[in-house]
Simulated assay, not measured.
Amino acid sequence: MLHLYTDSSPNGFKVTIALEELSLPYSLHHVRIDEGDHQQPDFLALNPHGRIPVLTDSDTGVVLFESAAILLYLSERTGKLLPQNARARWEAIKWLQFHASSVGPLLGQRVYFELFANAPIAEAIDRYRNLTQEMFAVLDRLLANRPYLAGEDYSIADIAHFGWMHIAQIVHFDFSQYRHLSEWYARIGARAAVQKGITLPAPATGA
């Protein structure tokens, strides 16, 4: 049995979307970060860094944190959401890693400096606005010639990117000028599993 420990966040939504896409049975445990659940001993035993999401598989004994690792595990477990063709498979993994190393961290820093910092720091705000706009442009150019990040196949790369792009929309980080990226976002967002996944364990409400 799969157990998912998560909260309403971009990283959490990646995994709820994937589980819904794969129609896998799982038990959902709401880790309420605002209430400090992520710092409780039972959760820290699963992830000593105190971050969501965490996935445990009681059938295999596997315990995973880091959303990219969880997405790869679910794909390997089911044989789905990664292309079978080797070139396309590595294309998906490459863009999954791009998300993990660039997209998520950059948008996370922009959210912090624009919305949560105690005092505005103009240099930091400008830096992360510029870096995220550059990242939007990279994705827009890629999607000008393919429907999904890996090519013709919808994959965990798309799911990973959608989690943070969904939050970007909610907090009004506008990327509408990037037509191909915006069309991709609408295409992914129309999927039934995505629409359900972004409501679990509760919808994001903005900052």
Results as ranks from 00 to 15, higher is better:
Pro53Ile: 05
Asn11Arg: 12
Leu24Phe: 01
Asp140Ala: 12
His99Asp: 08
Lys94Val: 03
Ala202His: 14
Glu91Met: 09
Val138Thr: 11
Ile167Pro: 09
Leu22Lys: 00
Arg32Asn: 13
Leu131Trp: 12
Gly104Ile: 06
Phe98Val: 06
Asp59Phe: 05
Leu46Arg: 05
Ile52Pro: 00
Pro83Leu: 06
Val15Asp: 03
Trp95Met: 07
Val63Pro: 08
Ile70Tyr: 03
Leu44Ala: 13
Ala160Ser: 09
Phe113Asp: 06
Ala119Val: 12
Ile198Ala: 12
Ala137Leu: 13
Pro120Gln: 14
Glu183Ser: 08
Val194Ile: 06
Leu142Pro: 13
His49Arg: 15
Leu115Pro: 02
Ile33Cys: 15
Asp59Pro: 03
Pro203Leu: 14
Lys80His: 01
Ile125Lys: 14
Arg179Asp: 06
Phe113Leu: 06
Tyr148Thr: 13
Gln97Gly: 10
Tyr128Cys: 09
Phe13Ala: 09
Phe43Asn: 07
Ala202Trp: 10
Leu55Ala: 00
Ile33Lys: 15
Asp34Cys: 07
Gly189Asp: 08
Glu21His: 00
Tyr185Asp: 09
Phe175Leu: 14
Gly79Thr: 08
Ala117Ile: 05
Ser9Leu: 07
Gly189His: 10
Asn145Phe: 15
Ala68Ile: 03
Leu4Lys: 00
Leu200His: 03
Ser23His: 12
Pro105Ser: 01
Ala207Gln: 14
Arg141Pro: 05
Ile70Glu: 02
Val15Gly: 00
Ala122Arg: 09
Asp57Val: 03
Gly163Pro: 01
Ser67Lys: 02
Ile17Ala: 03
Val54Met: 01
Leu149Ser: 12
Phe116Val: 05
Ser9Tyr: 12
Ser102Pro: 00
Glu20Lys: 01
Leu64Phe: 05
Tyr112Val: 04
Gln40Arg: 09
Leu139Val: 04
Ala150Val: 11
Arg32Leu: 08
Arg127Thr: 12
Ala18Tyr: 02
Ala68His: 05
Arg187Met: 05
Ser58Phe: 03
Asp34Pro: 05
Thr16Trp: 05
Val63Ile: 14
Met135Leu: 14
Val138Arg: 15
Met165Asp: 07
Met1Lys: 04
Val111Gln: 02
Phe65Leu: 06
Pro83Thr: 06
Pro83Gly: 07
Glu76Tyr: 04
Val194Tyr: 11
His30Phe: 11
Ala157Arg: 08
Thr132Val: 13
Tyr128Ile: 07
Ser23Phe: 05
Leu142Trp: 15
Arg87Gln: 02
Leu131Cys: 11
Asn11Phe: 06
Arg87Trp: 04
Thr78Asn: 01
Pro105Asn: 02
Ile188Gln: 03
Leu71His: 01
Asp140Val: 11
Pro10Cys: 06
Leu131Pro: 13
Phe113Tyr: 13
Arg129Leu: 04
Leu28Thr: 01
Ala144Pro: 03
Pro105Gln: 02
Ile159Met: 05
Leu149Ala: 11
Gly108Asn: 00
Leu131Ala: 14
Glu183Asp: 08
Leu149His: 10
Ala207Met: 13
Tyr128Phe: 13
Ala137Ser: 15
Val171Ile: 10
Ile188Asn: 03
Gly189Leu: 08
Asn145Thr: 15
His161Gly: 06
Gly189Glu: 08
Pro48Arg: 09
Pro203Tyr: 14
His180Ile: 10
Arg127Asn: 12
Leu149Trp: 07
Ala160Trp: 04
Glu91Trp: 09
His161Gln: 10
Val62Cys: 00
Ala45His: 04
Trp90Arg: 13
Ala207His: 15
Leu149Lys: 10
